[in-house]
Amino acid sequence: MKRLSKSFHFISGLPRSGSTLLATILRQNPAFHAGMTSPIGTLFSNLVASVSAGSELAPMVSTDQRARLSRGLFESYYADLSPAVETVFDTNRMWTANLGALAQLFPDGKVIACVRDVAWIMDSLERQYQLNVFENTRLFADPAQHTSVYTRCETWANRNGLVGYAWSALSEAVFGSFANRLLLVDYDLLTARPGEVIKLIYDFLEIGSFNHDYDNVVYDAPVFDEQLGTPGLHKVRKKVAPMPRKTILPPELFEQYGKLNFWQNLKGSGAKMIIQQNSE
């Protein structure tokens, strides 16, 4: 197959864990394109489903054709990028559940997976919900799912929920056959020591360094967030820095979800993770 003219890497992982922040930082490099979640993941899933087993079109489309059609999605979607852009980072939480496909489509592609203590992810989502209590947010399918903080967290944690799906897909990737393509980036470390974390990301990708400005990192997607009924969901603060706070979750919920951070022990996995080294 003909290789794409641009290099492709991917941003994935858990929600409310810094993927938009990371993309905003990387986009400061004029040789990079990065953004919030793109539609390619959904288009890819729908395309494969429509031309593979179980579809009446399956006999007409070979495996090689499916791969070419899939790569064509990327070529078409990013066709208008400036020639100066050499590397594209496509963001979608479903990429960790599709590493096998990415490995075939982009043999040199790697995935940056953003992670965060799950208890704080739930806290962040709950805060976002409480900021917009007069909105009919699309974070829930029906009113019964958001009657209290308990039902809200349960809905998000469901295996097909906002957090549960991403958590399951990440676990699959971390302990799967293509884990060596993964670099896990912790949200707290990214906000506390962005310069060091970004340098290590460049090293992982084997790309020359760039002088980023962590005091002027600004991003917002008001149109997208408002149609979700979640204004401010993807807004990035200007200065990259930690924002310590007390949780608003009931103690038992905070403890429950704080036990789900499986990436704190990567024994048996080929994935890499940026960790904080304690100085002597």
Score class of each variant (00 low, 15 high):
residue 1 M to D: 08
residue 2 K to M: 04
residue 5 S to G: 10
residue 11 I to M: 00
residue 12 S to K: 00
residue 17 S to P: 10
residue 19 S to N: 06
residue 20 T to G: 02
residue 28 Q to Y: 07
residue 28 Q to W: 06
residue 30 P to L: 13
residue 33 H to D: 10
residue 36 M to E: 10
residue 45 S to H: 06
residue 47 L to R: 02
residue 48 V to N: 09
residue 51 V to K: 01
residue 62 S to H: 08
residue 72 G to S: 08
residue 76 S to I: 03
residue 77 Y to D: 05
residue 77 Y to Q: 02
residue 80 D to L: 15
residue 81 L to K: 03
residue 82 S to R: 11
residue 84 A to Y: 08
residue 85 V to M: 04
residue 86 E to R: 15
residue 89 F to Q: 04
residue 91 T to F: 14
residue 91 T to V: 11
residue 92 N to Q: 10
residue 92 N to V: 04
residue 93 R to A: 05
residue 96 T to G: 12
residue 96 T to M: 10
residue 97 A to E: 13
residue 98 N to V: 03
residue 99 L to A: 10
residue 103 A to D: 02
residue 110 K to T: 08
residue 112 I to E: 08
residue 127 R to P: 06
residue 128 Q to K: 13
residue 130 Q to G: 00
residue 133 V to N: 05
residue 134 F to L: 11
residue 136 N to E: 11
residue 138 R to G: 10
residue 139 L to I: 09
residue 143 P to D: 10
residue 146 H to P: 04
residue 147 T to L: 15
residue 151 T to F: 10
residue 152 R to F: 08
residue 155 T to N: 07
residue 155 T to C: 04
residue 158 N to P: 01
residue 158 N to S: 11
residue 169 A to V: 01
residue 178 F to E: 02
residue 178 F to Y: 05
residue 183 L to N: 01
residue 188 D to T: 02
residue 191 T to S: 03
residue 192 A to N: 11
residue 195 G to H: 06
residue 197 V to L: 05
residue 198 I to L: 03
residue 203 D to M: 00
residue 209 S to M: 09
residue 211 N to E: 11
residue 212 H to D: 09
residue 216 N to V: 06
residue 224 F to M: 15
residue 225 D to S: 08
residue 233 L to K: 09
residue 233 L to T: 07
residue 234 H to W: 15
residue 242 P to D: 03
residue 243 M to V: 07
residue 248 I to W: 00
residue 249 L to S: 06
residue 252 E to C: 11
residue 257 Y to K: 00
residue 262 F to Y: 13
residue 265 N to R: 14
residue 266 L to Y: 12
residue 269 S to Y: 00
residue 270 G to W: 01
residue 273 M to D: 12
residue 275 I to F: 12
